[in-house]
Design a protein around this nucleic acid. Structure first.
Ligand SMILES: [Zn+2]
Ligand SMILES: [Zn+2]
Ligand SMILES: [Zn+2]
Ligand SMILES: [Zn+2]
Lengths: 131, 131
DNA sequence: AAGGATATGTAATGTCATAACATATTGGCC
DNA sequence: GGCCAATATGTTATGACATTACATATCCTT
């Protein structure tokens, strides 16, 4: 069972869910000033918990955060992100073959993987279409 | 033909080549104080060029840089990094199947990939062996 | 009600990266 | 050699991202 969210966690989650693109912690903070948030730590602490719960992902190449597009569906699987550098939209996907290949490399090199990041930067179909 | 490196580029390259683990720009700067470097920008500018030349890679999940382990050998291929969170060592590898799968996803979603990041964080064989 | 665990508030600081502007060096061309 | 443009360098200030440290409040179990 997913635990209930605290006030700050709810505020941060709502902000990310309503966003079209990834947001930095400081942008989230700015959008929550009217709700009483004042300091970066209030956001970072909420983000930490939301990351633990799998409701939010961190995009390493952007230093920003997105709401998970498929909560509860990727328990153990590998997640990849396609990030449009033009409109900012992010697509989440997973590929079993990619996971198998990376697991295979790790196993053959005695590497114990804790977390894997896959991020593709480029231009999405919507943006390409518009030229 | 690879262009010759300038003074600052050489200094930064030498520092990275001699390092056991990825270094942040500011750590590189600290190690080059005695050689006359004073400001972050001197390092960042050198890094930009070295990245362009493919002699250095940036690790997004670490905000740090490593010397390329196989210069000139990965022209267009996808590079993955296995990063030990214990000893800091980084292994570079590539996998044609992974590349094909990600290319396939991109093609089917009309996504034009510009740069792909794959970083596996965990513990390397050497560290596992020691417990 | 007591006490521990969890959540929150706040200030200060640390870490990573770039903008803006001045000066110096390099290298082709006449 | 002298000129000019391109490239590289030096320096200061500032912006952007993240954490440490400490105080207070709230929740939950006993
Ligand atoms: Zn997700
Ligand atoms: Zn787009
Ligand atoms: Zn390389
Ligand atoms: Zn190790």
């Amino acid at each position: 069972m997913t635990p209930d969210l605290t006030r700050n966690q709810s505020l941060v989650m709502k902000t990310l869910s309503g966003a079209e693109a990834p947001l930095s912690a400081y942008t989230i903070l700015d959008r929550l000033r009217d709700d009483g948030l004042r300091a970066p730590l209030q956001v970072y602490r909420a983000l930490d918990k939301l990351l633990d719960m799998g409701l939010v992902h961190r995009l390493e190449s952007l230093n920003a955060f997105v709401a998970c597009a498929h909560p509860h569906t990727h328990e153990q699987e590998l997640i990849a992100f396609a990030i449009c550098e033009n409109c900012g939209k992010v697509e989440e996907f997973s590929d079993e073959v990619v996971k198998e290949r990376l697991d295979g490399w790790a196993k053959s090199h005695r590497f114990r993987a804790a977390k894997t990041t896959i991020e593709i930067r480029g231009d999405c179909g919507g943006c390409e279409a518009k030229g």
